[in-house]
Design a protein around this nucleic acid. Structure first.
Lengths: 205, 205, 205, 205
DNA sequence: CATGAATGAGGTTTCATTCAT
DNA sequence: GATGAATGAAACCTCATTCAT
């Protein structure tokens, strides 16, 4: 019960430091200070600073993938699966917004390896959406472009929200408007103008 | 004409190195090797490596701003200005895709200063769109979210395209589909399903 | 008999690791892994890594000293004692060639303390030979130089043999030729040219 | 004329530090302090500490090889070539005794790479001697053993001399006695007892 | 204008050793 | 006796920047 998980502690501390300073400005010294342990201890759990950051990326990836797989298993039609996937991604991103910010906003340019890994993450999400969109009748080209556009829109919303310092509810509003735009844009709903607030009423029911 | 612009040469070389290696992996040594000059020469034109990268960000920014201002001055109605702004951004991003990739993808994580500047760039683009969207009747909240979503979608399209290695025509197709989605999503056109190829016919006329 | 000697086990394991990696490349981790015990256990038996290496040096030293003292007690004349000393050294070096290799080859450069100790070992051997050589009529200067030359020749033979991977019989042949050279060189035998194989016939009788 | 050779300066300083402290105790800091330059300057000329040490080994190797090749080109018979080779090695070792001490005495156990390189050096010297000994009538086995024994004896003499702190003349005396022992041992001279000082009179003539 | 040798602060990482269990 | 997680000092090396020529 007292059993502290040192690895998680360090990971948590690293997440905070990466978030405040960005990847390159984050020193091992700062991380272990935040984690209240010695420099050597860091290397008991991570092979390198890079390895530690990759662990954070994996954490976000697994968070979202779990959400997606669970959510999709509960519904049948492509339109429903699509909406579930979308909100599963949102759910995964919202679960730990600091983690999301670190991985999506602070990672990109730091290291070619991160970039590649980040694209694998984005591609994975997009693939689910593409699949459903094709089943909904879009061409595979339209689906691929639309799915990535949607992922890009979500990531940007996170970035804007992180800077704004607004409450998490503001992020949720943004996600809802993005859903509306894409759903209408994809012709998956009759609505053309304005947001019908009842529209989302049962998304999680 | 014979007068070589050393600064531009170095900036061009730096752009290539930043693109291949990312900001921190890019060394001054690599840049001056690519530019065929000595390390000291670099510092005749740039105060620092950071300053050099900021110059690249400014270059992209100015590229797009010019396009936007010129484009918007030629039309009157808000719907037309919106479309012109959108395509001006696209035009600016497409003009030098390596530059776009460097600034949009490599800037984050490297340096808090870049991140802030990058958001200023994205915000600036979004602002024009916001303005027009509001004039088109959207609430300012919807406009702000939609405008950033649109910028995010465009940036993502560039990222996907850069990795894919496809011809530039593929990027244009993606931009067109993104325009279609957002225009429909914003209720700015009667069209709901499919892409009407005549639709874009006169965008540059 | 069941009583395992932990100290000896660790010493044996350390010998192997020092031999494969050299002193500084040998980590405590590698040693305790090879000895199948925990890092802390190492320090129950040795004060430090240095102390452990010194224990190996002492082991070789005692091996040879025992041989020398026993061998010398069984004969009388200086010429006989000299030959006995020589072959006692050889016997001691041959008993555990890995140990010999570790001490003679891996000690230098690692630590000034080892170097000094190594020379004390070599000097000790040489002293016996010096003593006998003087009794055989050489000047003390000639004796000192010759004795060390002899030790150097033997050590080199071990080094060559360790690298060659040849059977131990090859090492013995080398030792015999070295004996022949030095005995003739020191004028302790009538033979001048060629090796008379009967010459060595009774060295151990 | 004022043109200082920075690389040589650093190499010289490193030689001194390695000699005083041994390879592993020698820090880059100590080397650059001795060379009166900054740490970074060291890395302009050497890829690493290891690389620097290898440069010292090469220096000694080239010193001796030059001596050998020149010396051997000036005489004809195998016995003369043998003596010339021997004294060329001695000459090479004596030219810079600090260098000799560093490479032969301080190097061995520091690093497997050094050891291998050092053996290549010793083998190279031995090969010349082997060649001549075979021409003098020894079997190739005897020659190989004897040549290495001779190299070992010389190296040991250097080690003894380094510790003793005696003047260089003492080292020369040792070399001469070693030559005498081996020449007599190899049956290349009529002399059996004592050193005939006139014997070496014309070795360099 | 141009050069490039020199600088030196500062970061990552290793590993011998300890000590609470 | 045995363990192995934790420690933290210390070393190597990089690279942006300067300045005498």
């Amino acid at each position: 019960m007292e059993e502290r998980d040192r690895r998680s502690e360090i990971l948590q501390a690293a997440q905070g430091v990466f978030n405040r300073n960005g990847y390159h400005q984050a020193t091992i010294r700062a991380i272990v200070d935040a984690a209240n342990c010695a420099a050597g201890t860091f290397y008991l759990y991570f092979a390198s600073k890079e390895d530690c950051f990759l662990a954070l990326m994996d954490k976000l990836y697994r968070n979202i993938m779990e959400q997606i797989l669970v959510a999709r298993s509960q519904v049948a039609g492509p339109a429903d699966k699509l909406r579930q996937s979308f909100w599963a991604v949102v759910e995964g991103l919202s679960r730990d917004t600091e983690l999301t910010s670190v991985v999506l906003v602070r990672a990109a340019g730091a290291n070619p390896l991160f970039e590649e890994r980040l694209w694998r993450v984005r591609d994975a999400f997009a693939e689910f959406i593409v699949e459903d969109l094709v089943e909904c009748g879009l061409t595979s080209e339209q689906a691929a472009i639309g799915a990535h556009a949607c992922v890009g829109a979500l990531a940007e919303a996170v970035g804007v929200w992180v800077r704004s310092g607004q409450p998490e509810s503001a992020l949720l509003v943004a996600f809802e408007e993005i859903e509306r735009i894409f759903w209408v844009g994809w012709g998956l709903t009759r609505q053309i103008e304005g947001v019908d607030s009842t529209y989302y009423g049962d998304r999680n029911s």
